[in-house]
């Protein structure tokens, strides 16, 4: 459906996008995820034709559109700050694309249908500045879909909305996307947005593609340190891999037992980063040496109460700080001595 091949973009000497390639299948909801300045927006703009790539190509429905002007690409784009035309009413904003694209079909019906889809039919005659931020996003979304584009691009469309509204809009965007069945590429720096909405996530960092995969795949089996650290929380142990008799990462004086399950095959003595997610760590109230592997003692340094659970910062003997969760019924206090334990199976190795 959409295929980006070896996309590279220089701004002067600055390399913004570095040889990025990926493809999205028909009907998929894909997300370009990365911190600001990672090149995800530049990639999106190159797909829309709003900037010229330095090299590489963009293919839409099998056709190379790299040299096609944006007004001939039949793309829908929702901008970061909605970018509705302030001198036109809501209805005129929607009609604009239909008219410019010479949309085949009844324009009135189409406008009505999409205004209803985003629940804004009552606001057809309003000017954009009479609408709230959330309403503007809805119109912007309808405007990008009304002429039935081949692909929908979302450039951080929820920027600047408050948290509750963002979460509502997230679900709504996802359900409209499925209803219309439009292939969608979404750009965001918000990992929870990316993980909750997408069929496929393309993680970018520093102009490069880090990893592509389903959200669970990225979270459970990150392939690079960046992905492991960027998605979710984790505690990192770094050291040399020693393979005797089962694989162990020697992080200072600490031995981290890991299970590589064939996915990961480093040579003996190689430097390895291991990560353990807070939800995989069990916290024991009294430090006991029960002989289990990956059991370490430490002191509770910080407790952040989150309602359904608490987030703990536990400092181990060598100063390493482990992030773990505890049930709030555990009644732990700061400076309590505790033990943490985790299953070798759950250790992520990169």
């Amino acid at each position: 459906m959409l295929e980006v091949k070896n996309l590279t973009k220089y701004y002067g000497d600055l390399l913004a996008v570095d040889d990025v390639s990926f493809r999205i299948e028909e009907g998929e909801f894909a997300t370009l995820l990365g911190p600001s300045g990672c090149g995800k927006s530049t990639t999106l703009h190159a797909i829309a034709g709003l900037i010229d790539a330095s090299s590489g190509s963009v293919h839409l429905r099998g056709k190379d559109v790299s040299d096609v002007a944006p007004y001939e690409r039949n793309i829908g784009l929702v901008f970061q700050h909605s970018a509705l035309f302030p001198h036109m009413t809501v209805e005129e904003n929607l009609r604009y694309g239909l008219k410019m694209q010479n949309f085949d079909g009844d324009h009135d019906d189409q406008v009505q249908k999409y205004l209803e889809m985003v629940q804004m039919a009552d606001h057809a005659d309003h000017k954009p500045d009479e609408l709230s931020g959330g309403q503007q996003r809805r119109i912007s979304f309808a405007r990008a879909l009304v002429y039935e584009p081949d692909i929908l691009l979302l450039d951080e469309p929820l920027t600047g909305l408050d948290r509750v509204l963002r979460e509502d809009m997230r679900n709504e965007i996802r359900s409209i996307q499925q209803e219309v069945d439009v292939t969608t590429l979404h750009v965001t720096h918000d990992q929870s947005e990316a993980l909750s909405m997408s069929d496929r996530v393309i993680v970018m960092n520093d102009g490069r593609k880090e990893q592509v995969g389903h959200p669970t795949e990225l979270y459970e089996r990150p392939e690079t340190e960046f992905v492991a650290e960027f998605l979710g929380q984790s505690t990192k142990f770094q050291g040399e891999l020693v393979d005797s008799p089962s694989p162990i990462v020697q992080a200072g004086s600490r031995e981290i037992h890991v299970k590589t399950n064939g996915r990961f095959d480093p040579a003996d003595g190689e430097e390895v980063s291991t990560y353990i997610r807070p939800e995989e760590i069990t916290v024991y109230r009294s430090p006991q040496a029960n002989g289990d592997v990956n059991t370490f003692t430490g002191t509770v340094r910080d407790i952040e109460y989150l309602g359904h659970r608490a987030e703990l910062e536990i400092e181990l003997g060598d100063g390493t700080v482990v992030t773990a969760f505890s049930q709030t019924s555990d009644e732990l206090d700061i400076d309590d001595e505790v033990a943490v334990q985790f299953d070798p199976e759950k250790v992520i190795c990169v």
Binding site: A48, G49, L50, A69, P70, Y71, E72, R73, N74, I75, G76, L77, F79, Q80, H81, A83, L84, F85, P86, Y96, G97, M100, Q101, N102, R143, Y147
Partner: peptide, 18 residues
């Protein structure tokens, strides 16, 4: 004029003169 409005117009199918 917000540059995004000009970009929006182009993506919506308007040629430069439009």
């Amino acid at each position: 004029i917000d540059e995004e409005l000009i970009n929006a117009s182009q993506v919506l199918g308007a040629r430069p003169m439009s």
